[in-house]
Simulated assay, not measured.
Amino acid sequence: METLANLEAFVRSAELGGFSSAARYMGLTPAAISRNVAQLERNLGVRLFHRNTRKLALTEAGERFLLSVRGNLDALQSAISDANADQGKPAGVLKVSVPMSLGMRYLIPTLPAFLQSYPDVRVDWQFDSRQVDLVADGFDAAIGGGFELSPGVVARPLAPAHIVAVASPSYLKGKKLPKSPDDLADWDAIVMRSGTSGRLRSWVMHHVGGDEAVVPLKARVAFNDPGPMTEAAAQGLGVALLAMPDVLPHLESGSLVRLLPRWYVDAGSISIYYSTRLSLSAKTRVFIDHVVEDFQQHQYAERFAGNSG
C-alpha cells in the first residue's frame, strides 16, 4: 500500500508543474519529492511523468492516476486533520475562499502570526468573489458578503458590508460637491459589471435619516472587480461606488474622498461562513477565532461602517 507522502508528492508535483514547486509547498527538498515519486512509480510499475530538463509532464497513465487519487488524497488529509482535531491539535490543509481585495489587504497580513501559532496547518486559499459551495467544493471556510446560506452552513458576521461613493481630489477639482445621489447623474462613473449576468450593477443608497434614492450613474468605465475600480477612481477617472474595505486605505491617505458622507448602500454583512454538518475541525475553529479576534483588534466593524458619516 502506498504511503501518503508518496501520493501527495505525486499529486502536488502534477498540480504545481514540478518537483521544486511541490517541495516548496510541502516543506521538503526537490530530491525528497523526486525520490517519493520514483518509489511510487516503481511500486505501480508505470511511469507517471515525462521528465526533461525544462518541464515535467504527465504521461497518459499519470493523467489517469491523478484523476483517481486527487480527491481521495484530499479526503484522507481531511480525515487525518479531523483525527488530530479530536486530540485538540490544529493540523492539515486549511482551504478558504476569500475575495481578492479583502484577502490581500486584511487577511494575508494576519497569516504570519497564525502560521507561527499553528505550524502544522497549511494554507490553501482561493481568491474569488463568487459564492462557493463549502461542502461540495471542500472548503473549510469562506469569507465575504451576500452569500445565500445553504443547509448546514452558518455565517458569523464580522463587519458591515457598506458601499460608499468616492472620487479622487483631481476629479473633484472645480466641481461642486453633490448634496444628494441625484447630483451624480452627470458625472463620469466607474461601474461594476456582474461576472454572472454581465449586467451593470445598480445601487440604492440609504440616508442615515431613513431616506432612500436610486443612484443615477452615467457609466464611463466598467470593470468586473472592485480592485481595478478602486485604482481607476484613484487615477481620477470618475466617481465609483465601492465597499468600505476597498477604499478605506485610500480615504485614510487622501487619495480618495468620500462623497455624500451621510449616504451609503447597505449590502448586508461581511461574514465568515463554515459548515456545521460535521464537528468543526480544530484548524477551522482556530482560524475562525483568529479572524474574529483580528477584526475586533483593528475595529473593522466600526471602520467599515458607512452610516457613521
Rank of each mutant, 00 (worst) to 15 (best):
G17R: 06
G17W: 04
G18W: 10
F19P: 02
S20L: 01
S20D: 13
S21Q: 14
S21V: 04
A23N: 09
A23V: 01
A23I: 02
R24S: 08
R24I: 00
Y25G: 00
M26K: 08
M26L: 15
L28I: 01
T29S: 15
P30Y: 01
P30S: 03
A31D: 13
A31E: 14
A31G: 14
A32E: 05
A32P: 00
A32K: 10
I33F: 08
I33Q: 04
I33C: 05
N36M: 07
V37Q: 02
A38E: 14
A38P: 02
Q39G: 11
Q39W: 10
L40F: 06
E41C: 06
E41G: 06
E41A: 03
E41Q: 14
R42Q: 12
N43D: 15
L44M: 12
G45M: 10
G45K: 06
R47E: 14
R47P: 00
L48N: 05
F49M: 03
F49Q: 05
H50K: 03
H50M: 10
N52R: 09
T53S: 14
T53W: 05
R54A: 08
K55T: 13
K55A: 14
L56V: 08
A57S: 12
L58P: 15
T59A: 06
E60T: 10
A61N: 12
E63I: 11
R64Y: 03
F65R: 15
F65S: 04
F65C: 02
L66I: 09
L67V: 06
L67C: 08
S68P: 00
V69A: 08
V69R: 06
V69C: 07
G71R: 13
N72Q: 14
L73A: 06
L73I: 07
D74L: 13
D74C: 02
L76V: 12
L76F: 08
Q77P: 00
Q77A: 00
A79D: 07
A79K: 12
A79C: 03
I80D: 10
D82A: 15
A83D: 10
A83T: 09
A83R: 05
N84V: 00
N84L: 08
N84F: 13
N84Q: 12
A85M: 01
D86G: 11
D86W: 02
D86A: 07
D86P: 00
D86Q: 09
Q87D: 09
Q87K: 11
G88V: 06
K89G: 00
P90S: 05
A91Y: 03
A91H: 03
A91R: 12
V93Q: 10
V93I: 12
L94Q: 03
L94W: 05
K95L: 02
K95I: 04
S97N: 15
S97W: 01
M100I: 09
S101Q: 07
S101W: 02
L102H: 04
